[in-house]
Design a protein around this nucleic acid. Structure first.
Length: 341
DNA sequence: ACCTGTCAAGTCTGG
DNA sequence: CCAGACTTGACAGGT
């Protein structure tokens, strides 16, 4: 199995390269000239896009072919007081430049709208804002000129006292959206509420692929035993990706491989928190099991040390390789993992 | 230069 | 019913 690794949002190797610079609404409101304020928002967004491009160039130079953009590329993008502002009119060219670079160099990119995007909510106004937030992320991918392999990863949301009902509501409310949404979304298990099994059931019913977060699973496993995850759930998760490839017309697994998230617990007292780096051994254990049924897999690292965590993981995998473990480092961003027998 | 409170947004918990 | 926690990077205002 070929595994490609990626990282999230910012690079610690580059200096002054934040892709998430922002301006608060309070600050925007202080400006006398609203038009000048909007131009400033656009300048900040342009800088964020330039820095995203610098990061993609670093990825390419390092052999990394997976990256998640910051959700904060356009400050105040969906603020209701700025509903008349169309940032894409001014920024379209820059978005296209970023997307073209990713496409030309084979870097799989994504977004992860944050926890304000909740399709399980019972509140209509929250649902409407969630839809707008997701649409904004989809528009960014469209403006980049990327096809539907580039997706937005979301969670189910809150439980509101009844997880089964909330899960139903997610399926119903998300299902009411058009294919423009459905074709751009993946669904991830979370660390507190919806387990792998519950998320998988929702993903299957909504007809969208599931992203497995193995750290979230470790802290929120529900009744699922480790071998059950390997034996029963991973093949089902894999199938959600196969169905997605069939739906969108991708013939090969490598054109849209299943995606997982990996991170390590921050500490014993804060096991849900993300550590600076990612431990190699538990990850390899999972990968070797997945390798029995999967040929291509993409693994997003969610570590505080971002791209440096990826560098360190590759180094640690080299050490395992030298010890004769079932991994072979291919380059700075990918490894081959041999199946558990 | 460094530290602290705040930020547009949602949900959950505890008082 | 309301305040605070949760979580994250960055800004703004203070020292």
């Amino acid at each position: 199995m070929i595994v490609r690794f990626g990282f999230v949002a910012m690079s610690l190797q580059l200096t002054n390269a934040s892709p998430s610079k922002t301006m608060t609404f309070a600050n925007f409101s202080k400006l006398d000239d609203r038009e000048a304020g909007i131009r400033k928002l656009e300048r900040i967004a342009e800088e964020n896009l330039n820095n995203s491009l610098r990061i993609l160039k670093l990825c390419h130079a390092s052999g990394i072919r997976m990256y998640r953009f910051s959700s904060k590329l356009i400050p105040l993008a969906t603020h209701e007081q700025l509903a008349d502002w169309d940032p894409f009119a001014e920024l379209g060219e820059k978005f296209r430049e970023v997307g073209s670079y990713a496409k030309e160099h084979g870097i799989r990119v994504s977004f992860h709208p944050d926890h304000f995007c909740v399709f399980s909510t019972p509140r209509p106004e929250v649902l409407a804002k969630s839809e707008l937030d997701l649409l904004n992320h989809i528009r960014m991918l469209e403006a980049m000129g990327l096809d539907e392999a580039a997706k937005c990863n979301i969670h189910i949301g809150g439980a509101y006292g009844d997880k089964a009902v909330a899960g139903e509501r997610f399926v119903r409310q998300f299902g009411a959206l058009s294919s423009r949404f459905k074709n751009r979304v993946t669904l991830e298990n979370d660390d507190k509420t919806f387990t792998v099994l519950e998320t998988l059931e929702a993903a299957e019913r909504a007809g969208i692929p599931m992203v497995l977060d193995i750290h979230h699973h470790a802290v929120n496993p529900g009744d699922t035993a480790e071998n059950e995850l390997y034996e029963q759930l991973w093949p089902r998760i894999s199938l959600t990706w196969q169905k997605e490839r069939e739906r969108l017309g991708y013939a090969q697994e490598r054109q849209l491989p299943p995606k997982i998230h990996a991170s390590s617990p921050k500490s014993d007292t804060d096991p849900r928190g993300h550590a600076d780096f990612v431990e190699a051994e538990p990850l390899v254990r999972f990968l070797r099991h997945a390798a029995r049924t999967t040929e291509h897999l993409d693994c997003m690292l969610e570590a505080k040390s971002k791209d440096e965590a990826l560098l360190k993981l590759i180094e640690d995998l080299r050490l395992l390789e030298a010890k004769g473990e079932a991994v072979k480092v291919l380059d700075g961003g990918s490894v081959e993992v041999f199946p558990q027998v």
